[in-house]
Amino acid sequence: MKQKKKTRRQNFFKGIMFLLPSIILFSLFLFYPMIKTFYLSFFLTDMAGTPTVFVGLDNYIQLYTSDIFRKSFISTFLFVLYIVPSSIIIALFLAVLANEKLKGVGLFRTMYSSTMGISVAAGSIFWMYLFNPSMGLLNEALGVIGIDSIGWLTDPDWALIAISLTTIWMNIGFTFLILLGGLQSIDQSLYENANIEGAGYFRKLFQITVPMLSPTLFFVLVVTIINAFQTFGQIDILTKGGPQYETNLIVYSIYREAFVNRQFGPASAQAVVLFVIILIMTAIQFKFAERKVHYQ
């Protein structure tokens, strides 16, 4: 009995030693910043971010009563609603096409996944030229069919849509590759049996492909939603949160409050709120969406 306890203790300490590098890294770059952010959310700070006055829940109450934060909250959810279904549907469509055994399909796979190799800055600059009100390709195309030019990045009605289009384009490469990998892992004997039974293309798609791909789709859904809530780069480059705060998503609002206004307390409160939103959204997905997942 004593020998078993000694062996168990030794195995425990061995496991801790193997995990120690990861524990240290997570503590330095994840747990400490998280705890520090939660702590700062109850204070006002000086320009250097040092806590000066304890204000309790006042920072959170101000968020609740702030029209700007309320607009950021609504814009963030609209943004997520725009890009998540669109990114997944388009990437799934491209992945199904690229999974067909056709001559030269490798070229299309490279094209569809190419956005993965483009940085957010380069992609944003590319779309900035497309959105240019006077010489942008999009407005020139609209002019050809007789539609007036649109102020993609300056019109409050279109700015969030423009950012969403940019983000969808940037996300497609990653989502496409993950879905294509999922498609290629499906057992081909299922399709062979379906062919013997005379099943058509769409019947195989909805009764074999989508159910077998459901674990990959679930993973993509969770990751895409989290990434959508954390979108920052293209907003900073293209709109700076404008016009009229229409693209001032919560992440950009946190950045502006902390590093432009130097108000680290209210910014920390916003960060905590964003963390809770992402946590709740992820929990909802695991609670309800995972029920539809079919694991082989």
Rank of each mutant, 00 (worst) to 15 (best):
S113V: 04
L19F: 12
A228N: 08
R70N: 14
I172D: 05
L179I: 13
T167E: 14
M170W: 10
K71T: 10
F69K: 04
T216R: 03
T65L: 10
E290P: 02
Q10M: 04
V223I: 09
Y295L: 14
M1T: 09
G200W: 00
T65G: 04
F73L: 12
K36L: 10
F42H: 11
A91C: 03
G146E: 15
E197I: 13
T239P: 03
L180D: 02
F176N: 05
N139R: 13
V220T: 15
E257M: 15
I161C: 08
L238N: 14
I35F: 02
W158V: 04
M1A: 13
I280Q: 03
G49L: 12
F131A: 02
V251E: 12
L78G: 13
L40Y: 05
F126I: 12
G181T: 09
A98V: 08
L137I: 09
F202N: 13
W158F: 11
G181E: 08
D46P: 01
T166M: 09
L217T: 01
S124W: 07
Q62S: 04
E192H: 06
F219P: 01
L97C: 13
Q285R: 01
K292D: 00
L107H: 02
S22M: 13
F219V: 06
G15N: 12
S22D: 07
S124K: 04
G104L: 08
R70H: 08
A159I: 15
T216S: 10
S253C: 01
Q263E: 14
K14L: 15
F77P: 06
G200S: 05
G136Y: 01
L165P: 01
K292F: 05
K5P: 03
I168A: 12
L57H: 00
I280G: 02
Q10V: 01
L107P: 03
E257A: 15
W169R: 07
M135L: 06
S253G: 06
T115P: 06
I35S: 01
S214T: 07
I277K: 03
G265Y: 07
T231V: 00
V80Y: 01
S22C: 13
K36F: 14
D67M: 05
F219N: 03
F232R: 10
P51I: 00
G198V: 02
H294Q: 06
F218G: 04
A98Q: 05
F288A: 04
F18S: 12
I125T: 04
N261E: 12
D148R: 06
T167I: 09
T166A: 11
Y191D: 14
I208D: 08
A162N: 08
Y32F: 15
F275K: 11
M1S: 13
Y64S: 15
G198R: 02
I88R: 00
I237V: 14
